[in-house]
Design a protein around this nucleic acid. Structure first.
Lengths: 178, 178
DNA sequence: TGATTTAAAGACCGTTTGGTCTATATTTCT
DNA sequence: AGAAATATAGACCAAACGGTCTTTAAATCA
Protein backbone atom coordinates (compact mmCIF):
# COMPACT_ATOMS: atom_id res chain seq x y z
CA UNK A 1 0.00 0.00 0.00
CA UNK A 2 2.74 2.37 1.04
CA UNK A 3 4.50 2.35 -2.29
CA UNK A 4 1.35 3.19 -4.25
CA UNK A 5 0.60 5.79 -1.63
CA UNK A 6 3.79 7.71 -2.06
CA UNK A 7 4.34 7.25 -5.79
CA UNK A 8 0.95 6.79 -7.41
CA UNK A 9 -0.26 4.01 -9.68
CA UNK A 10 1.56 4.66 -12.94
CA UNK A 11 4.82 5.67 -11.30
CA UNK A 12 4.98 2.45 -9.31
CA UNK A 13 6.83 -0.21 -11.29
CA UNK A 14 6.94 -3.93 -10.67
CA UNK A 15 10.39 -3.82 -9.05
CA UNK A 16 9.04 -1.29 -6.54
CA UNK A 17 6.23 -3.66 -5.67
CA UNK A 18 8.58 -6.61 -5.34
CA UNK A 19 10.78 -4.68 -2.98
CA UNK A 20 7.79 -3.47 -0.98
CA UNK A 21 6.08 -6.84 -0.69
CA UNK A 22 9.32 -8.84 -0.40
CA UNK A 23 7.73 -11.27 -2.80
CA UNK A 24 9.17 -12.78 -5.91
CA UNK A 25 7.65 -11.92 -9.25
CA UNK A 26 5.98 -15.30 -9.52
CA UNK A 27 4.53 -15.28 -6.02
CA UNK A 28 3.17 -11.80 -6.45
CA UNK A 29 1.31 -12.74 -9.61
CA UNK A 30 0.09 -15.96 -8.04
CA UNK A 31 -1.24 -14.04 -5.06
CA UNK A 32 -2.77 -11.00 -6.71
CA UNK A 33 -3.23 -11.66 -10.41
CA UNK A 34 -1.87 -8.43 -11.79
CA UNK A 35 -0.78 -4.94 -10.91
CA UNK A 36 -4.26 -3.50 -11.21
CA UNK A 37 -5.81 -6.04 -8.84
CA UNK A 38 -3.04 -5.49 -6.35
CA UNK A 39 -3.63 -1.78 -6.52
CA UNK A 40 -7.34 -2.27 -5.89
CA UNK A 41 -6.51 -4.35 -2.83
CA UNK A 42 -4.23 -1.62 -1.54
CA UNK A 43 -6.88 1.01 -2.17
CA UNK A 44 -9.52 -1.04 -0.37
CA UNK A 45 -7.16 -1.40 2.54
CA UNK A 46 -6.53 2.32 2.71
CA UNK A 47 -10.23 3.11 2.50
CA UNK A 48 -11.10 0.57 5.18
CA UNK A 49 -8.61 2.18 7.52
CA UNK A 50 -10.07 5.60 6.83
CA UNK A 51 -13.66 4.49 7.34
CA UNK A 52 -12.75 2.69 10.55
CA UNK A 53 -11.13 5.84 11.87
CA UNK A 54 -14.15 7.95 10.96
CA UNK A 55 -16.46 5.49 12.65
CA UNK A 56 -14.47 5.82 15.82
CA UNK A 57 -14.21 9.59 15.71
CA UNK A 58 -17.87 10.11 14.85
CA UNK A 59 -19.21 7.29 16.98
CA UNK A 60 -22.93 8.00 17.58
CA UNK A 61 -22.49 7.22 21.28
CA UNK A 62 -20.07 10.09 21.69
CA UNK A 63 -20.87 13.77 21.76
CA UNK A 64 -21.22 14.77 18.10
CA UNK A 65 -19.43 18.08 18.48
CA UNK A 66 -16.50 16.44 20.21
CA UNK A 67 -16.49 13.87 17.44
CA UNK A 68 -16.39 16.50 14.72
CA UNK A 69 -13.62 18.26 16.54
CA UNK A 70 -11.62 15.05 16.68
CA UNK A 71 -12.36 14.41 13.01
CA UNK A 72 -11.02 17.81 11.99
CA UNK A 73 -8.08 17.59 14.38
CA UNK A 74 -7.15 14.29 12.80
CA UNK A 75 -6.92 15.89 9.38
CA UNK A 76 -4.96 18.85 10.71
CA UNK A 77 -2.55 16.42 12.28
CA UNK A 78 -2.29 14.28 9.16
CA UNK A 79 -1.50 17.32 7.03
CA UNK A 80 1.28 18.74 9.13
CA UNK A 81 4.96 18.07 8.71
CA UNK A 82 6.10 14.88 7.02
CA UNK A 83 2.65 13.34 7.19
CA UNK A 84 1.38 16.19 5.05
CA UNK A 85 3.98 15.68 2.35
CA UNK A 86 2.95 12.08 1.98
CA UNK A 87 -0.50 13.10 0.88
CA UNK A 88 -3.54 10.92 0.57
CA UNK A 89 -3.88 7.81 -1.56
CA UNK A 90 -7.58 8.39 -2.13
CA UNK A 91 -7.11 11.89 -3.52
CA UNK A 92 -4.10 10.92 -5.60
CA UNK A 93 -6.05 8.01 -7.05
CA UNK A 94 -9.08 10.19 -7.63
CA UNK A 95 -7.08 12.58 -9.73
CA UNK A 96 -4.97 9.97 -11.49
CA UNK A 97 -7.44 7.19 -12.26
CA UNK A 98 -11.01 7.96 -11.30
CA UNK A 99 -11.86 9.33 -14.71
CA UNK A 100 -10.63 6.30 -16.65
CA UNK A 101 -11.12 3.34 -14.35
CA UNK A 102 -14.61 2.25 -13.34
CA UNK A 103 -13.43 -0.03 -10.52
CA UNK A 104 -11.55 2.82 -8.95
CA UNK A 105 -14.33 5.30 -9.56
CA UNK A 106 -16.87 3.17 -7.70
CA UNK A 107 -14.65 2.82 -4.67
CA UNK A 108 -13.76 6.49 -4.47
CA UNK A 109 -17.30 7.74 -5.01
CA UNK A 110 -18.58 5.42 -2.33
CA UNK A 111 -15.88 6.51 0.08
CA UNK A 112 -16.63 10.20 -0.30
CA UNK A 113 -20.31 9.47 0.05
CA UNK A 114 -19.77 7.45 3.24
CA UNK A 115 -17.62 10.17 4.70
CA UNK A 116 -20.12 12.90 3.91
CA UNK A 117 -23.00 10.87 5.33
CA UNK A 118 -21.11 10.18 8.55
CA UNK A 119 -20.34 13.86 8.99
CA UNK A 120 -23.92 14.84 8.15
CA UNK A 121 -25.20 12.35 10.71
CA UNK A 122 -22.99 13.80 13.38
CA UNK A 123 -24.20 17.27 12.50
CA UNK A 124 -27.80 16.08 12.64
CA UNK A 125 -27.26 14.69 16.10
CA UNK A 126 -25.70 17.98 17.11
CA UNK A 127 -28.73 19.77 15.73
CA UNK A 128 -31.26 17.77 17.72
CA UNK A 129 -29.10 18.39 20.77
CA UNK A 130 -29.52 22.10 20.09
CA UNK A 131 -25.83 22.60 19.52
CA UNK A 132 -25.95 23.89 15.97
CA UNK A 133 -26.07 27.57 15.11
CA UNK A 134 -29.24 28.94 13.58
CA UNK A 135 -29.89 28.07 9.97
CA UNK A 136 -27.19 25.44 9.64
CA UNK A 137 -28.28 22.56 7.43
CA UNK A 138 -26.43 19.33 8.33
CA UNK A 139 -26.22 18.09 4.73
CA UNK A 140 -24.84 21.39 3.48
CA UNK A 141 -22.43 21.84 6.36
CA UNK A 142 -21.24 18.27 5.84
CA UNK A 143 -20.28 19.00 2.27
CA UNK A 144 -18.42 22.08 3.41
CA UNK A 145 -16.48 20.16 6.03
CA UNK A 146 -15.63 17.29 3.70
CA UNK A 147 -14.44 19.66 1.00
CA UNK A 148 -12.41 21.53 3.54
CA UNK A 149 -10.54 18.49 4.80
CA UNK A 150 -9.91 17.13 1.32
CA UNK A 151 -8.67 20.53 0.20
CA UNK A 152 -6.40 20.57 3.21
CA UNK A 153 -4.75 17.38 2.08
CA UNK A 154 -4.14 18.88 -1.34
CA UNK A 155 -2.53 22.13 -0.31
CA UNK A 156 -0.51 20.45 2.41
CA UNK A 157 1.32 18.36 -0.20
CA UNK A 158 3.47 21.34 -1.14
CA UNK A 159 3.24 23.37 2.05
CA UNK A 160 2.50 21.24 5.07
CA UNK A 161 0.07 22.76 7.42
CA UNK A 162 0.88 25.03 10.31
CA UNK A 163 -0.84 27.14 12.91
CA UNK A 164 -3.15 28.82 10.42
CA UNK A 165 -4.69 25.54 9.38
CA UNK A 166 -5.23 24.55 12.98
CA UNK A 167 -6.97 27.84 13.56
CA UNK A 168 -8.92 27.44 10.35
CA UNK A 169 -10.32 24.08 11.40
CA UNK A 170 -11.36 25.50 14.75
CA UNK A 171 -12.84 28.62 13.21
CA UNK A 172 -14.78 26.67 10.61
CA UNK A 173 -16.46 24.39 13.13
CA UNK A 174 -17.11 27.32 15.44
CA UNK A 175 -19.15 28.94 12.68
CA UNK A 176 -21.52 25.98 12.72
CA UNK A 177 -22.00 25.35 16.42
CA UNK A 178 -23.22 27.57 19.16
CA UNK B 1 -2.22 21.25 -22.10
CA UNK B 2 -5.54 19.49 -22.49
CA UNK B 3 -4.04 16.06 -22.81
CA UNK B 4 -1.96 16.37 -19.64
CA UNK B 5 -5.03 17.82 -17.99
CA UNK B 6 -7.25 14.86 -18.65
CA UNK B 7 -4.71 12.05 -18.35
CA UNK B 8 -1.94 13.20 -16.03
CA UNK B 9 1.79 13.26 -16.61
CA UNK B 10 2.80 9.61 -16.53
CA UNK B 11 -0.26 8.39 -18.38
CA UNK B 12 0.36 10.78 -21.26
CA UNK B 13 2.57 9.13 -23.87
CA UNK B 14 4.47 10.75 -26.71
CA UNK B 15 1.90 9.72 -29.33
CA UNK B 16 -0.80 11.46 -27.31
CA UNK B 17 1.23 14.64 -27.32
CA UNK B 18 1.92 14.41 -31.05
CA UNK B 19 -1.78 14.03 -31.75
CA UNK B 20 -2.65 16.90 -29.41
CA UNK B 21 -0.02 19.31 -30.72
CA UNK B 22 -0.32 18.18 -34.33
CA UNK B 23 3.45 18.27 -34.41
CA UNK B 24 5.88 15.68 -35.64
CA UNK B 25 8.20 14.00 -33.20
CA UNK B 26 11.15 15.99 -34.42
CA UNK B 27 9.41 19.34 -34.31
CA UNK B 28 8.10 18.73 -30.85
CA UNK B 29 11.56 17.99 -29.48
CA UNK B 30 13.02 20.96 -31.34
CA UNK B 31 10.40 23.22 -29.85
CA UNK B 32 10.22 21.99 -26.29
CA UNK B 33 13.26 19.90 -25.53
CA UNK B 34 11.62 16.99 -23.79
CA UNK B 35 8.42 15.75 -22.26
CA UNK B 36 9.14 17.23 -18.88
CA UNK B 37 9.79 20.73 -20.23
CA UNK B 38 6.67 20.55 -22.31
CA UNK B 39 4.69 19.57 -19.26
CA UNK B 40 6.11 22.49 -17.31
CA UNK B 41 5.02 24.82 -20.09
CA UNK B 42 1.53 23.38 -20.03
CA UNK B 43 1.39 23.71 -16.27
CA UNK B 44 2.55 27.33 -16.42
CA UNK B 45 -0.12 28.01 -18.99
CA UNK B 46 -2.83 26.48 -16.84
CA UNK B 47 -1.67 28.40 -13.77
CA UNK B 48 -1.50 31.68 -15.67
CA UNK B 49 -5.07 31.22 -16.81
CA UNK B 50 -6.18 30.51 -13.27
CA UNK B 51 -4.36 33.49 -11.80
CA UNK B 52 -5.72 35.77 -14.49
CA UNK B 53 -9.23 34.64 -13.71
CA UNK B 54 -8.73 35.17 -10.00
CA UNK B 55 -7.36 38.65 -10.62
CA UNK B 56 -10.48 39.50 -12.53
CA UNK B 57 -12.89 38.03 -10.04
CA UNK B 58 -11.12 39.50 -7.04
CA UNK B 59 -10.24 42.82 -8.66
CA UNK B 60 -9.58 45.33 -5.85
CA UNK B 61 -11.73 47.91 -7.66
CA UNK B 62 -14.78 45.72 -7.36
CA UNK B 63 -16.82 45.04 -4.27
CA UNK B 64 -14.88 42.36 -2.39
CA UNK B 65 -17.94 40.39 -1.35
CA UNK B 66 -19.24 40.31 -4.90
CA UNK B 67 -15.80 39.22 -5.97
CA UNK B 68 -15.69 36.37 -3.49
CA UNK B 69 -19.13 35.32 -4.56
CA UNK B 70 -18.00 35.22 -8.18
CA UNK B 71 -14.88 33.33 -7.18
CA UNK B 72 -16.88 30.64 -5.42
CA UNK B 73 -19.52 30.55 -8.14
CA UNK B 74 -16.77 29.94 -10.67
CA UNK B 75 -15.61 26.87 -8.79
CA UNK B 76 -19.15 25.59 -8.36
CA UNK B 77 -19.63 25.98 -12.08
CA UNK B 78 -16.34 24.33 -12.93
CA UNK B 79 -17.15 21.34 -10.76
CA UNK B 80 -20.58 20.60 -12.14
CA UNK B 81 -21.37 18.21 -14.94
CA UNK B 82 -18.71 17.36 -17.50
CA UNK B 83 -16.45 20.19 -16.36
CA UNK B 84 -16.29 18.53 -12.96
CA UNK B 85 -15.25 15.16 -14.33
CA UNK B 86 -12.33 16.75 -16.08
CA UNK B 87 -10.82 17.77 -12.80
CA UNK B 88 -8.01 20.22 -12.22
CA UNK B 89 -4.51 19.98 -13.63
CA UNK B 90 -2.99 21.70 -10.62
CA UNK B 91 -4.45 19.26 -8.13
CA UNK B 92 -3.68 16.23 -10.28
CA UNK B 93 -0.10 17.43 -10.65
CA UNK B 94 0.15 18.18 -6.95
CA UNK B 95 -0.77 14.64 -6.06
CA UNK B 96 1.19 12.96 -8.84
CA UNK B 97 4.44 14.89 -8.96
CA UNK B 98 4.77 17.55 -6.29
CA UNK B 99 6.54 15.24 -3.89
CA UNK B 100 9.20 14.11 -6.35
CA UNK B 101 9.75 17.04 -8.71
CA UNK B 102 11.19 20.29 -7.41
CA UNK B 103 10.26 22.30 -10.52
CA UNK B 104 6.67 21.26 -10.16
CA UNK B 105 6.65 21.75 -6.42
CA UNK B 106 7.77 25.36 -6.70
CA UNK B 107 5.07 26.22 -9.21
CA UNK B 108 2.28 24.59 -7.28
CA UNK B 109 3.29 26.00 -3.91
CA UNK B 110 3.50 29.47 -5.39
CA UNK B 111 0.10 29.10 -7.03
CA UNK B 112 -1.66 28.07 -3.84
CA UNK B 113 0.07 30.88 -2.02
CA UNK B 114 -1.00 33.45 -4.61
CA UNK B 115 -4.55 32.24 -4.50
CA UNK B 116 -4.72 32.33 -0.73
CA UNK B 117 -3.22 35.81 -0.61
CA UNK B 118 -5.69 37.11 -3.17
CA UNK B 119 -8.61 35.70 -1.23
CA UNK B 120 -7.23 37.03 2.04
CA UNK B 121 -6.84 40.49 0.49
CA UNK B 122 -10.42 40.47 -0.67
CA UNK B 123 -11.52 39.46 2.81
CA UNK B 124 -9.41 42.21 4.32
CA UNK B 125 -11.05 44.77 2.09
CA UNK B 126 -14.42 43.39 3.09
CA UNK B 127 -13.41 43.73 6.72
CA UNK B 128 -12.43 47.39 6.48
CA UNK B 129 -15.72 47.96 4.69
CA UNK B 130 -17.43 46.49 7.73
CA UNK B 131 -18.86 43.62 5.79
CA UNK B 132 -17.28 40.77 7.71
CA UNK B 133 -18.99 39.01 10.58
CA UNK B 134 -17.52 39.50 14.04
CA UNK B 135 -14.33 37.65 14.81
CA UNK B 136 -13.54 36.60 11.26
CA UNK B 137 -9.83 36.69 10.53
CA UNK B 138 -9.14 37.23 6.82
CA UNK B 139 -6.06 35.00 6.74
CA UNK B 140 -7.86 32.16 8.47
CA UNK B 141 -11.03 32.50 6.44
CA UNK B 142 -8.93 32.58 3.27
CA UNK B 143 -7.42 29.24 4.08
CA UNK B 144 -10.88 27.84 4.73
CA UNK B 145 -12.18 29.10 1.40
CA UNK B 146 -9.19 27.89 -0.58
CA UNK B 147 -9.35 24.45 1.01
CA UNK B 148 -13.06 24.34 0.32
CA UNK B 149 -12.74 25.06 -3.39
CA UNK B 150 -9.83 22.67 -3.85
CA UNK B 151 -11.72 19.98 -1.99
CA UNK B 152 -14.67 20.65 -4.25
CA UNK B 153 -12.59 19.88 -7.29
CA UNK B 154 -11.50 16.60 -5.76
CA UNK B 155 -14.87 15.22 -4.80
CA UNK B 156 -16.46 16.43 -8.03
CA UNK B 157 -14.16 14.14 -10.04
CA UNK B 158 -16.29 11.14 -9.11
CA UNK B 159 -19.58 12.84 -8.36
CA UNK B 160 -19.95 16.13 -10.17
CA UNK B 161 -21.45 18.79 -8.09
CA UNK B 162 -25.13 19.59 -7.79
CA UNK B 163 -27.49 21.78 -5.85
CA UNK B 164 -25.96 20.92 -2.49
CA UNK B 165 -22.57 22.25 -3.51
CA UNK B 166 -24.11 25.43 -4.78
CA UNK B 167 -25.88 25.84 -1.47
CA UNK B 168 -22.70 24.94 0.38
CA UNK B 169 -20.71 27.69 -1.32
CA UNK B 170 -23.41 30.21 -0.51
CA UNK B 171 -23.75 29.03 3.06
CA UNK B 172 -20.01 29.08 3.65
CA UNK B 173 -19.56 32.65 2.50
CA UNK B 174 -22.67 33.71 4.41
CA UNK B 175 -21.03 32.52 7.60
CA UNK B 176 -18.25 35.03 7.08
CA UNK B 177 -20.10 38.13 5.99
CA UNK B 178 -22.85 40.11 7.63
C1' DT C 1 11.78 28.76 -61.44
C1' DG C 2 15.48 27.07 -58.71
C1' DA C 3 18.01 27.22 -54.30
C1' DT C 4 17.48 27.13 -49.41
C1' DT C 5 15.32 26.61 -45.31
C1' DT C 6 11.71 24.35 -42.54
C1' DA C 7 8.79 20.89 -41.15
C1' DA C 8 6.69 16.15 -41.53
C1' DA C 9 6.99 11.19 -41.42
C1' DG C 10 8.53 7.47 -39.45
C1' DA C 11 12.51 4.16 -38.98
C1' DC C 12 15.31 3.34 -35.33
C1' DC C 13 17.69 3.15 -30.61
C1' DG C 14 18.32 1.51 -25.84
C1' DT C 15 15.56 1.08 -21.84
C1' DT C 16 11.74 -0.09 -19.16
C1' DT C 17 7.20 -1.70 -18.82
C1' DG C 18 3.79 -5.48 -17.16
C1' DG C 19 3.62 -10.28 -17.38
C1' DT C 20 5.13 -15.46 -18.02
C1' DC C 21 7.89 -19.40 -17.30
C1' DT C 22 11.50 -22.53 -15.88
C1' DA C 23 14.91 -24.21 -13.01
C1' DT C 24 16.45 -24.24 -8.29
C1' DA C 25 15.90 -23.97 -3.31
C1' DT C 26 13.17 -24.34 0.64
C1' DT C 27 9.47 -25.95 3.28
C1' DT C 28 6.08 -29.17 4.76
C1' DC C 29 4.24 -33.42 5.73
C1' DT C 30 4.36 -38.53 6.50
C1' DA D 1 14.92 -39.31 5.75
C1' DG D 2 12.38 -38.88 1.59
C1' DA D 3 8.41 -37.36 -1.25
C1' DA D 4 5.36 -33.54 -2.42
C1' DA D 5 4.20 -29.03 -2.49
C1' DT D 6 5.60 -24.27 -2.41
C1' DA D 7 8.32 -20.28 -3.02
C1' DT D 8 12.43 -18.27 -4.88
C1' DA D 9 15.50 -16.06 -8.31
C1' DG D 10 15.85 -14.52 -12.50
C1' DA D 11 15.83 -15.50 -17.61
C1' DC D 12 12.77 -14.27 -20.95
C1' DC D 13 8.94 -12.06 -23.76
C1' DA D 14 6.41 -8.68 -26.64
C1' DA D 15 5.00 -4.14 -26.31
C1' DA D 16 5.51 0.57 -25.20
C1' DC D 17 8.32 4.05 -23.33
C1' DG D 18 11.10 8.64 -24.21
C1' DG D 19 14.27 10.30 -27.39
C1' DT D 20 17.29 10.67 -31.86
C1' DC D 21 18.13 10.75 -36.64
C1' DT D 22 17.56 10.36 -41.54
C1' DT D 23 14.80 10.87 -45.45
C1' DT D 24 11.21 13.05 -47.89
C1' DA D 25 7.92 16.68 -48.68
C1' DA D 26 6.48 21.46 -48.27
C1' DA D 27 7.24 26.36 -47.79
C1' DT D 28 9.93 30.34 -48.39
C1' DC D 29 12.65 33.58 -50.75
C1' DA D 30 15.60 35.54 -54.53
Amino acid sequence: MGVFWSRGYHATALPDLLRATKLSRGSLYAAFGDKHSLFLRALDCYIDDAVTRIDIELDPRKDPVDGLRAYLAGYVDRTSGAHGRRGCLVIATTMELAGHDADVNRRIASFFKVMEVRVADALSRAKVAGKLADGVDPAIAARILVCFVEGLRVISKTAPTGAITHAAADALLDRFIR
